[in-house]
Simulated scan of single mutants.
Amino acid sequence: MRDARVSLVTLGVSDLARSARFYEALGWTRTDAGNEAVVFLQGEGLVLSLFGMRDLAEDAGLAAEPLPRFRGATLAVNLPSEPEADRLFAVAVAAGAQSVKPLQRASWGGYSGYLADPDGHLWEIAHNPFFPLDAQGRIDLTPSSEEPA
């Protein structure tokens, strides 16, 4: 069994319905697994969970506190081309995201920008020509098992 994986990411949100609409506009599929307190959205290889901010803090045994603008973490979507990154960035902004750093050529050789969802969670939208994507669009950095000829 491989434990090095993320199966589900939960985001604390201030308005469950608004956040569900936002992520559905980006292509996530809402499932029937949730209830009035939590929404589960199916993505490609990952489930995104939206939980009321206060309820999530309570579930973790913590006090709900104001969130800083920069929280020390980002989520990322890597796409196979710059035009696809441009398309998703524009869709997200039209759905209510705030452009934090417009898409641009990055010093590391790719194309990247940042946006914040309606609750300020940062997402990087990128095309990284050095991170190959498999047939399902997932990054695959495992070395090839093929021996050179």
Rank of each mutant, 00 (worst) to 15 (best):
T74I: 11
L122V: 14
H127R: 05
T29K: 15
S7V: 07
W123T: 00
A90T: 08
Y23H: 05
G45M: 00
Y114F: 10
V13N: 01
P118I: 08
P129H: 03
V38C: 09
L26M: 08
V47Q: 04
I139H: 04
I139F: 00
A135S: 14
Y114C: 04
A60R: 11
Q136E: 14
I125C: 00
G43D: 02
D32F: 02
S144A: 10
G43N: 01
F22L: 10
R21F: 00
L11D: 03
A33T: 07
A92F: 08
N128F: 06
E146M: 13
W123D: 05
R5F: 13
A95N: 10
E44F: 05
E65D: 12
E24C: 15
R21A: 15
M1D: 07
N35Y: 05
A106W: 11
A106N: 15
P129L: 10
L103Q: 12
E24K: 12
S99F: 00
L115N: 09
V6Y: 06
A116F: 01
T10Y: 00
V91M: 03
T142M: 11
V39N: 11
E44S: 12
G52C: 09
D86M: 03
S14F: 06
F70K: 09
F70M: 03
L141D: 08
A97W: 05
D15N: 15
G45S: 06
P102K: 06
R87L: 08
G43T: 10
R5L: 09
D140K: 07
W28C: 01
A4G: 01
S81Q: 11
I139L: 04
D3Q: 07
E84Q: 15
G96N: 06
S14N: 08
V91N: 09
D3G: 14
L16V: 06
R18V: 14
E44Y: 05
A126M: 14
F70L: 11
L8R: 12
G45E: 02
L46Q: 04
G110Q: 12
G52Q: 09
V6I: 15
P118F: 02
I139Y: 00
G52F: 04
E24V: 12
D55L: 10
H121N: 13
L48R: 00
A76I: 01
G27P: 06
G113S: 07
D119K: 06
L67R: 15
V47R: 02
H121L: 04
V9R: 06
P148R: 12
T142S: 15
P129K: 11
R69P: 03
D3C: 02
R5I: 02
A90V: 11
R69W: 06
P143A: 10
L67D: 14
L115Y: 10
